[in-house]
């Protein structure tokens, strides 16, 4: 039996090698590749990249806007107390700084794009993109970072504002001073100790936020995931919009006076951990799940008859004019004391 299996495996391997070698030739000469379709297959993280290691720096304005796209790699952006942008890439491609605009007063670049060099044919398009095993960027503390990424794990710390959009990979943001817009299609988003308007969006990942505060009155906090869980702790924004389709939502923090909070999920559960002296107007809508609260609610209207949807409208505490709307179709709603 072993002999048979051995023969079979050896033969299959030989045939597969021959077929594998001949297939590209067949594909090249036989069937034209669909040119209009964007290549969507990412290189894959397990790919061992071999490239150059290079480092460059350029003098920059303190409020420089840095734009770049990254096809693959672990990206770390760190703010430092220098008016200089430094980029280090290990095992990646070469790059140049493209100064788009200069400060009229100082003459220092205030808009810089990092341009990849010699990328063509290496990965998906990306003639202007950079890639590498490790990409480290140091920027002034007041820099605005704008990143497009493909398969990029990004860690950004201590900059003014971040706009990042990636196809896949986790995004971790920390100490962002004046606003975040982070979108990833497949990955987690983590935000810590950040200020300003915050918009977080992931398709299949989780969202975790710890200590977020508005930079100005009216700054919104938006977090949306389709399949992941959202966990918020110490979010000080007064306009909070949180949604998940099949994930749960946990809110652990205070309900601020005058705030508008909207938590919804189609299938997940909603859990709020709030101070016992919280005061706000509550509208809880739920379907197949149930509602329970450790805090006393003064019911105003209650519609919990049989049917696909049940609603409770009531008030917790006195004096507060915040409005909290919690909605889930299949999950339960729970309000607990901190």
């Amino acid at each position: 039996m072993k002999e048979i299996i051995k023969h079979l495996l050896l033969s299959a391997a030989a045939v597969a090698i021959v077929a594998g070698l001949s297939l590209p030739a067949i594909a090249h000469y036989g069937v034209p590749a669909p040119v209009d379709k964007p290549a969507v297959r990412a290189p894959g993280r397990s790919l061992i990249m071999r490239g150059d290691t290079s480092e460059k720096s350029v003098k920059a304005d303190g409020s420089v806007r840095l734009t770049l796209c990254v096809t693959q790699g672990t990206l770390k952006v760190n703010g430092w107390n220098r008016k200089e942008v430094r980029v280090y890439i290990r095992d990646g491609n070469k790059f140049n700084f493209n100064v788009r605009e200069k400060n009229e007063t100082t003459g220092d670049p205030n808009w810089i794009t990092i341009m990849g060099v010699g990328n063509k044919g290496r990965y998906l398009g990306g003639s202007d993109c950079i890639w590498g095993n490790d990409i480290e960027i140091d920027v002034p503390l007041n820099a605005i970072i704008s990143i497009k990424g493909q398969e990029t794990t990004a860690q950004i710390d201590s900059v003014k504002r971040v706009e990042i959009s990636t196809v896949g990979g986790d995004i971790s943001l920390r100490n962002i001073a004046a606003g975040i817009s982070a979108v990833t299609r497949q990955g987690d988003v983590t935000v810590e100790s950040s200020k300003g308007p915050i918009r977080l969006d992931t398709t299949t990942g989780n969202i975790v936020v710890f200590e977020a505060t508005p930079g100005e009155i009216g700054d919104p906090f938006l977090a949306k995931t389709h399949g992941g869980t959202i966990s918020l702790q110490s979010v000080q924004h007064r306009q909070v919009e949180v949604g998940s389709i099949s994930g749960s939502v946990l809110y652990n923090g205070t309900i601020l006076n005058g705030g508008s909070y909207n938590f919804n999920s189609n299938r997940g559960s909603m859990r709020m951990l709030i101070p016992a002296d919280s005061s706000f107007q509550l509208q809880a809508t739920f379907g197949a799940g149930n509602f329970n609260s450790e805090l006393n609610i003064k019911m105003e209207t209650e519609n919990i008859q049989a049917g696909p949807i049940k609603t409770i409208v009531g008030r917790l505490g006195t004096g507060g004019d915040a409005f909290v709307k919690v909605s889930t179709n299949n999950g339960s709603i729970s309000i607990r004391k901190q």
Binding site: P38, C69, G125, K148
Partner: peptide
């Protein structure tokens, strides 16, 4: 898809 095209 838009993002992928923009990276092209």
């Amino acid at each position: 898809e838009e993002l992928l095209v923009s990276l092209k």
